[in-house]
Write a protein that binds this DNA or RNA. Structure first.
Length: 841
RNA sequence: GCCGAGGUGGCGGAAUGGUAUACGCGCAGGACUUAAAAUCCUGUGGUCCAACUGGAUCGUGAGGGUUCGAGUCCCUCCCUCGGCACCA
């Protein structure tokens, strides 16, 4: 019976099932009653004006495939989607196209939704999150308040990063090689009073947590580098002639006897040493500060400085050394003061040369600057001497010795800075704080009245006059403004709107002022994963029972570019909520997979290159299933796969062949072929299953192709009197294996061919096929035979005899091609059962 | 400079220490066609010898090493990409 293959009309098929899936809400799990929850999350996008590009399609498909796989494995998969629509990225787009962000987003989020639906992803469209909605940011503000009450949000004057193009301050993490993460402009340093989150309090927790999460290694490494913990000593150098000591941090206390000078940063001198300086030196300091302020970033590398005229005493050997002021000492790392050991530090060496300072080597091993005696990990790698004696075996000995002698103490230093949360912009949640001048006068604040657990160093933090907006008054609505563009005055656009900021003090009722800065967009995204399962519940940000059931996230899928931004902030916020006993886990993403970056025709996609791939046209032409398969087949998920038009055409050929095969009639087979097909089928199930589990989608698809090629090759071999059962099973299995990759095609075939009629049950809820380990073994095994490690022949052995050494050896020796090379009796015969045979002659 | 990941055909890429180049793209030849598209079939790392069915040899950035056997492990070096960087 020859049957005509229906036309493969991808548009018809895909639209039909996408509509059906949404109508039947098949991807909306029962959040409250789920017995087997699996939270499958992809980093939500911010809806830019240009829409979803192929990089999004690549990443989201990778996430969707895993979700569909887990669903077929019997999990209640919750796969939500939303929009990171509040914040500087959206606002910058709005500025660029000259439209109000609110109006722009109404359009772009709709566009995104359409695009995402066209990809055929299994999102729960009944529970979306839009960070710019008051119903959401009400809780973002609530989160700020919780941090403030816990003593983790504070305001202080500090040297901060300012982006002149975005006209706002930004966090340390948002400065990439001196440039703004958003707009790539050169970042400036400014001294401003800003709100910070005390993330540095969590530095050690953030590091320790890495041990219990399963993340892509490179992301963990990036976070560790960023946190930048180093072990060393704080050593006190008394100022000669005054009752004052300068503390330095060093990771090389072993070089203490090589100190020939000391250097402090200009602001350290200004802050701490001004009273000890002579009039002349005071003047010199002011002039020096002025001079270096005018030096541009790239010229700043040159080490300048001057002698303060003061001397400090080395606690170890009592030597008095000169004290310098120089720009090469960082103000915000360590203590702002450095002990100068020119013999063992290149920077100190440069400085010493310039100022003709003494250079005293104390460790032979690294005198030539090639190797450090201390490897930075707490171990001494080379021999040397400490205080005249032979080097002890480990670094801790030196630290203990220093402590014992009272010269200083063991300490740690971190690269991580507190998270600067204020933004002088419009499009974000207003920071929910009120400043009352009356209370400030009295030195009263929320924290002094209500207590709250004060944390960290409070020396430069005065909370006087600050009150959080009472929680029942949240959200502090962002008013609709026409003059919403940033001015760069150091204040946000809300500063021009008394009707916004004029308010009453929640404590004393006096006239007070609201904070007019908004918060960093990364605060919006630091907790969105907590909101999704509780969408629809408006009394709390996240329902306790639901959160306990669904969180932490089972699989988080996203880009590695967020290593020290979103991923670190989200971990921090989660730890805080855990400490506040609001959740019962302290790592939000125990399992995170960092996908790679798609490129096009060998180059990075960018607007300037004009090679940004828009998925829409490919979906239009080939269908989402072809696009999905191609995106996943291009290369490894964590690599840099190259999108090529010829490549997707090739995949389209495969999809059309697949369509023909899946629609073709049954082929009757004899027993031998039936057995062969069954073996291939079980091998394919095994390979595809294991490959999906390790995100090796490209090889999973390759295996499906192998199976399809094999089935096609048998199509002409119908056997009279044979059976069709195995063939049907093969087609059925193939349809199931395809379901995560090509969901529409699989659904169409499944419903037409295998599903029970009448009651709609999607292929995506059918059980994932399992393989029988006994059936993946071939009947005959090909064993390569080597002589001296060189392949000489391949012999075919019945699988039950493939482990029999004597049998395989004798068979191999009968092989002419092998015998030819065995000129004398082998010295040794290496046999790997069922795998390989090697004669060593 | 430090840390991390890599370097495999013309290209994207496969390979628990065990037949290197699966799968796909591209290319070449052929079939079908008046022709083209589409589709299908065959071939496709280099060199040499055969010229039917083969066979030898070299070959995974370079050079060493371990091993019966190395793309895979170890050492030295080169290059590419990513992160951090005047971090004491």
């Amino acid at each position: 019976m020859k049957q005509k293959t229906p036309k493969y009309d991808h548009r018809l098929i895909e639209e039909k099932w996408q509509k059906r899936w949404v109508e039947e809400k098949i991807f909306s799990p029962d959040i409250k009653n789920s017995k087997n929850p699996f939270y499958n999350l992809w980093m939500f996008p911010y809806p830019s004006a240009e829409g979803l590009h192929a990089g999004h399609a690549f990443a989201s498909t990778g996430s969707d495939i895993y979700g569909r796989f887990m669903r077929m494995k019997g999990k209640d998969v919750f796969q939500p989607i939303g929009y990171d629509s509040f914040g500087i990225h959206s606002e910058n787009y709005a500025l660029k196209i000259g439209e109000h962000p609110q109006a722009m987003l109404a359009r772009t989020t709709k566009h995104y939704e359409e695009q995402l639906k066209k990809m055929g992803h299994g999102y729960d469209w009944t529970r979306t999150v839009t960070t710019s909605n008051p119903g959401y940011y009400r809780w973002t503000q609530w989160l700020f308040v919780q941090l403030f009450k816990a003593g983790l949000a504070y305001q202080k004057e500090a040297e901060v990063n300012f982006c002149p193009s975005c006209k706002t301050v930004i966090a340390d993490e948002q400065v990439i090689a001196g440039k703004c993460e958003r707009c790539n402009s050169d970042v400036q340093k400014k001294s401003l009073k800003q709100w910070f989150f005390r993330i540095t309090d969590y530095a050690d927790r953030l590091l320790e947590g890495h041990n219990k999460i399963k993340w892509s290694e490179r992301v963990v490494v990036a976070q560790k580098n960023w946190i930048g913990k180093s072990k060393g000593a704080l050593i006190k150098f008394p100022l000669v002639g005054f009752d004052f000591s300068i503390e330095v941090f060093t990771t090389r206390p072993d070089t203490l006897f090589g100190v020939t000078f000391m250097v402090v940063s200009p602001s350290y001198a200004k802050k701490n040493l001004i009273r000890f300086l002579s009039e002349g030196k005071k003047k010199e300091l002011d002039e020096y500060i002025k001079r270096i302020q005018n030096i541009k970033e790239d010229e700043g590398k040159e080490k300048t400085g001057f002698d303060s005229g003061l001397k400090v005493k080395n606690p170890a050997d009592g030597k008095e050394v000169p004290l310098f002021v120089s720009n090469y000492v960082l103000d915000d790392y360590g203590t702002g003061a450095v002990m100068g050991v020119p013999a063992h530090d290149v920077r100190d060496f440069d400085f010493a040369k310039k100022h003709s300072l003494e250079i005293v080597p104390v460790i032979e091993a690294d005198w030539d600057f090639e190797k450090g005696a201390y490897d930075g990990e707490g171990k001494i790698t080379n021999s040397g001497s400490w205080n005249g004696k032979q080097y002890p075996a480990d670094f801790d000995f030196i630290l203990e010795d220093i402590e014992k002698k009272g010269w200083g103490k063991q300490s740690f230093s971190y690269h991580l800075r507190d998270w600067l949360i204020s933004r002088q912009r419009y499009w974000g949640p207003p920071i929910p704080m009120i400043y009352c001048p009356q209370c400030a006068k009295k030195g009263v604040s929320y924290l002094t009245i209500e207590g709250g657990s004060l944390r960290g160093d409070q020396s430069d933090w005065d909370s006087s006059g600050w009150w959080p907006v009472p929680e029942e008054e949240l959200p502090v609505l962002l008013p609709e403004l026409s003059d919403w563009k940033p001015e760069g005055s150091g204040k946000g656009p809300l500063e021009n709107h008394p009707e916004f900021y004029e308010t009453r003090c929640p404590h004393c009722g006096a006239l007070a002022k609201r904070e007019t800065d908004v918060s960093d967009t990364f605060l919006d995204s630091s907790w969105y994963f907590l909101r999704y399962p509780s969408v629809g519940i408006d009394s709390v940000p996240f329902d306790a029972d639901i959160t306990q059931k669904w969180l932490p996230v089972d699989l988080y899928f996203g880009g590695a570019e967020h290593s020290v931004l979103h991923l670190m902030y989200a971990r921090f916020i989660t730890m805080v909520l855990y400490d506040l006993k609001l959740i019962d886990f302290d790592e939000p993403f125990p399992f995170f997979f960092a996908h790679g970056l798609m490129i096009k025709d060998g180059a990075k996609m960018s607007k300037s290159r004009g090679n940004v791939v828009n998925p829409d046209s490919y979906i239009e032409k080939f269908g989402a299933d072809t696009l999905r398969l191609y995106l996943m087949f291009m290369g490894p998920m964590d690599g840099y796969p190259d999108f090529r038009d010829e490549g997707i055409e090739g995949m389209n050929r495969f999809v059309r062949r697949l369509w023909r095969l899946l629609n073709s009639g049954l082929v009757a087979l004899d027993e031998n072929l039936s057995r062969e097909i069954r073996i291939k089928m079980h091998q394919t199930i095994k390979k595809v299953t294991e490959d999906i589990e390790r995100f090796s989608y490209n090889t999973a698809i390759a295996q499906i192709m192998v199976f399809v090629n094999f089935l096609e090759s048998l199509q002409g071999q119908a056997f009279k009197g044979g059976k069709t059962k195995v063939w049907e099973e093969a087609i059925r299995t193939l349809t199931l294996l395809l379901a995560p990759f090509a969901p529409h095609l699989a659904e169409e075939i499944w419903q037409n061919r295998f599903a029970e009629k009448g009651n709609y049950k999607s292929v995506h809820f059918e059980a994932w096929p399992s393989f029988n380990p006994k059936l993946v073994v071939e009947e005959k095994i090909r064993i390569p035979v080597q002589v001296n490690g060189k392949l000489r022949s391949v012999i075919e052995v019945d699988s039950d005899k493939a482990g029999n050494r004597a049998f395989v050896v004798s068979l191999a020796r009968q092989d002419v091609k092998v015998a030819k090379w065995i000129t004398k009796e082998p010295k040794k015969i290496v046999f790997v059962a069922g795998k390989l045979l090697n004669f060593v002659v």
